[in-house]
């Protein structure tokens, strides 16, 4: 740690300079970091697993909803995004390789390309979100499309909003605004649970004349969009974080910090980006390719 670094340090000296005091060797430090990163990525997968589990439960109990609502999504956008992420995965893997071999220009280029891929993915996804918002293909009470997936008009949903009262008016500022944050969402004066005579959602016959008019629209389609936005939203958040971290790597790479002696951050972020890619490879078929 304290040994002086020469003007042109050897890889060994660079590695020693980055060695924390409680590790014996650079290899031990790198292995510890790698193990820690794998564990962190496992917890990331577990974070998503809750959503995959919710997906599985609702798809098993409401198959008609998933088949119907899945038709709203554009598989081409999803496929393009999958290809973009796969490509960015390749450039990230190359970046790791170039960091290890000390090819600094190629490293910076690959990091920049990976960021570009991430931004492209987000742009296409933002367009999809925007279109969903326009068509009111949203979660909960916000789900109110006027057009079915086949392009034919459907009558507006009236049942949902009636079940849940509108939130109270929100006070404008300061303490009261904060106070209303906690009470955001539903404030109901009566139980929001449906009377038992209606029966469980999805099983019960359509109970309102308006719903009967949407003969081809199953009940509770809003659940699909709730899950869709949660899954893709959490994934997009990870893409954003990835872009930021890769940007930080790019700055350090342009400074010439990475080489054969020290490249651990590139390796760790490469692992992270691989997992982010992989999650999309599951999300894409689960959400866009339902038959």
């Amino acid at each position: 740690m304290s040994e002086a670094i020469a003007i042109n340090p050897t890889d060994e000296q660079v590695a020693r300079a980055h060695l924390a005091h409680h590790f014996d060797t650079p290899q031990q430090q790198f292995d510890a970091g790698t193990l820690g990163m794998w564990m962190f990525l496992a917890t990331e997968m577990l974070l998503f697993s809750g959503l995959f589990c919710a997906y599985a439960v609702f798809r098993a109990t409401h198959p008609e909803v998933f088949k119907y609502a899945g038709q709203y999504l554009d598989p081409v956008s999803g496929l393009i995004n999958a290809l973009i992420l796969l490509t960015s995965g390749l450039t990230m893997a190359l970046a790791v390789r170039f960091a290890q071999t000390g090819k600094r220009v190629a490293l910076s280029l690959c990091l920049a390309l990976t960021m570009l891929g991430g931004v492209g993915f987000l742009a296409i996804h933002a367009k999809e979100y925007f279109d969903n918002g326009q068509a009111k293909l949203l979660w909960g009470t916000h789900y109110a499309p006027s057009v079915g997936p086949n392009g034919k008009p459907v009558a507006p949903i009236t049942g949902l909003a009636a079940l849940v009262a509108k939130p109270k008016p929100v006070a404008s500022s300061g303490w009261h605004a904060l106070k209303s944050l906690g009470k955001a969402g539903f404030v109901v004066s009566h139980s929001a649970i449906m009377p038992a005579s209606i029966g469980p959602a999805g099983v019960a016959p359509a109970q309102k004349p308006a719903a009967v008019a949407n003969a081809f629209q199953p009940a509770n389609v809003q659940i699909f969009f709730g899950i869709y936005f949660l899954m893709t939203g959490l994934h997009s958040l990870h893409v954003i974080i990835g872009i930021i971290v890769i940007g930080w790597l790019l700055i350090r790479s342009l400074r010439g910090e990475f080489g054969p002696g020290y490249n651990a951050p590139v390796v760790y972020v490469g692992m992270y980006w691989g997992v982010v890619d992989m999650v999309w490879m599951f999300l894409f078929p689960l959400l866009y390719l339902i038959h």
């Binding site: 409401h62 009470t141 955001a184 809003q222 659940i223």
Partner: peptide, 16 residues
């Protein structure tokens, strides 16, 4: 659920 009314756990919105 509370901020956006996403509905996964809310039976009023078809949740479980």
């Amino acid at each position: 659920e509370r901020v956006m009314g996403i509905g996964i756990f809310n039976p009023a919105l078809g949740g479980n």
